[in-house]
Amino acid sequence: MSLSNRTILIVDDEPRTRQGIKQTLEVWAAGRYAVETCDNGVEARERLRQERVHLLITDVRMPEVSGLDLIRSLQDSAWKPVIIVISGYAEFDYVQQAMRLGAVNYLLKPLDKSELLSVVEDALKREEEQQRHVKLEKLVDHKLMEIDPDQAGMGQPVKDAIAYVEQHLHEQLTMAEVAGLIHLNASYFSVLFKEQAGVSFSEYLARLRIQRAKELLLQTSLSIGEIGERVGYRTDKYFIKVFKSLEQLSPSRYRHKMKGGSQEIH
């Protein structure tokens, strides 16, 4: 049994082709990937519903559930593997359909080992890039991204407040203190900030702190308490509470999932 939590699934109803690909990839992978097989599309479709597969290599034509059917069944899946299809020369129209459905490459029978490895390596690089994008998407706070100090309509006082908060995020900040620094009444500043930034000052501060915390969780090995302090929280308990309110999971669970300790990112 492979210790790898990354899986390549080969689906082909021809035993010789299926086993040949498996053996070639197992030698190449050297334990980096679990290389598994299915001899029909029905079994493969069920496995793909239940298990996380990173790369799917499937024949386009099989009885009952074809490779094309298999690819179509993945269209609404939360986790889509990268897909390579296998076909004979006479079936190239099926390959074209598979590419339109999202397959990244194809192999023609009889398979050439060096071509197989080249295509597989390229597909796995694409899969890693896709996962990187998924993680970056999870890392980014889109509400913060919408707050642009250079946008029309944002006055200098709010710009100054944003610049100050970004530079002093590790300190204990209050709205009254920041308003005072830019010579505004706190109540007026509160209304002005929400009107121009689109969120309240307290929400902006919390989101910015948690955004910075997420970066530290992934880029450092600092403890949860140390990260909380670095983004301006006096206690672990309050930091965890705010983090959970925005991310729906604790800082430690977030770090575990985003660093690949789990196959899920909720």
Rank of each mutant, 00 (worst) to 15 (best):
I71H: 09
A197K: 00
S114I: 12
R255W: 06
A197D: 00
Q219P: 02
I147Y: 03
C38M: 11
A78P: 07
I10D: 05
A176Y: 11
L70T: 04
I86T: 10
A176T: 15
A90S: 13
R6T: 12
L246P: 00
T17F: 04
M258P: 08
V11N: 01
F189W: 07
A152S: 01
R72N: 08
G225H: 13
I162K: 08
E129I: 14
Q131C: 09
T17R: 02
L139A: 09
L169V: 00
K194M: 01
K237V: 15
L25V: 09
I240H: 05
I84V: 15
S66E: 08
L181M: 10
F239G: 01
K194N: 09
V42M: 07
A152V: 11
R16H: 13
K113C: 03
V120W: 03
P63E: 03
T24A: 14
T174R: 03
L218E: 05
W28M: 09
N5K: 14
Q196N: 06
A44K: 07
L3V: 08
E177M: 03
R207D: 14
Q75E: 15
W79S: 12
Q156T: 08
I182L: 12
M99S: 05
R209L: 02
Y106T: 02
W79A: 07
D148C: 07
Y233S: 04
Y89I: 11
L70Y: 06
L217M: 15
R49P: 03
N40H: 11
V95Y: 01
V65P: 00
L222S: 04
I8R: 07
S87N: 12
V11S: 10
F239I: 12
K113N: 10
N105W: 14
L56Y: 06
E195T: 14
Q196D: 05
Y94Q: 10
V60S: 08
F92S: 05
I83L: 03
A44G: 00
S118R: 14
F243E: 08
E137H: 13
I210T: 02
I227M: 02
V178H: 07
Q50P: 04
Y238A: 06
P15D: 13
L70D: 08
R52W: 15
V35F: 04
P63I: 10
T24C: 14
R47D: 08
Q211I: 04
A29P: 12
Q156D: 06
E121H: 06
A90T: 14
E129T: 07
G153S: 00
L48T: 02
D13G: 10
G41I: 04
Q97R: 10
T220F: 12
F92M: 15
K80D: 05
L218D: 05
I83Q: 09
A30N: 13
E195Y: 14
I10E: 00
E203I: 06
R49M: 15
C38T: 07
A78M: 11
K125G: 12
S202K: 13
